[in-house]
Each structure stands twice: as C-alpha cells, then as structure tokens.
C-alpha cells in the first residue's frame, strides 16, 4: 500500500505543478488569447493528474468492491474533464475571435 500512496503523491504533486504554471500564465501573459492558451492546457492536465491521484489514493484502504467503484467514478470525472475542458477553451476562444478581441502583437508593446 505504500507504493500506492507514493504514486498518489507523485500524481497530485504533478497536478499542483501544472495548476501553478497555468496560474502564472494567467497572471503574466499579455492578452486574452495567450491567457486562454496557458489555462486551457495547464488546467486540463493539472485536473487530470490531481483527480487520478485521488482515485489511486482512494484504493489505499484496500481493494474491495466499494473502493474500486468509487475510484471508477473518480476516473469518469477525469475523462469528462479531459473532454469538456479543451472544448470549453475552444468555445471561449472562438467567441473572443467572433467579438473582435484584438490579438496582442509585437508592435503595440504595453509600456
């Protein structure tokens, strides 16, 4: 069971790392599209890793039917995040493009 705990720690720390990079990107990047680029990828992978880590950690109580069922439900959440999050990013990006949000270019560097 110690192996499962170590694996869960690795997964959750990986998730936290990607959430952190996504947040730094959201705060530091210059315009709407760059920020969506950072959060869209970072949040998806971060949530995926963190939720998978929780599913593995849940198994450390022992492999009974109840814990395996709970883990499968958590994995379902991960799958749906993996599908829905990039699509939501795409939709927001597309809506920004449709409502004429200007992309940041090198000419107009903010002072």
């Amino acid at each position: 069971m110690i192996i499962l705990t170590i694996l869960a720690i690795i997964f959750i720390l990986g998730g936290v790392f990607f959430f952190t990079t996504a947040t730094i990107g959201l705060l530091r990047f210059p315009d709407f599209y760059c920020r969506m680029h950072a959060t869209g990828k970072g949040d998806t992978l971060g949530a995926l890793l963190a939720v998978t880590g929780l599913a593995i950690y849940n198994l450390h109580h022992g492999f009974s039917l109840a814990t395996i069922l709970v883990s499968i439900k958590i994995i379902f959440i991960a799958v749906f995040i993996f599908l829905a999050n990039p699509t939501a990013t795409h939709a927001i990006m597309r809506a920004g493009l449709d409502s004429d949000v200007e992309p940041w270019t090198k000419k107009e560097v903010p002072k």
Binding site: T87, H90, A91, R94, A95, D98
Partner: peptide, 11 residues
C-alpha cells in the same frame, strides 16, 4: 447570434 461549430456540436 448564429454560431455553428462542429467541435462543440459533436462534444
């Protein structure tokens, strides 16, 4: 607004 997008519709 008319907004058709094959990715969103498929998902």
């Amino acid at each position: 607004r008319e907004f058709e997008d094959v990715i969103i519709q498929t998902l």
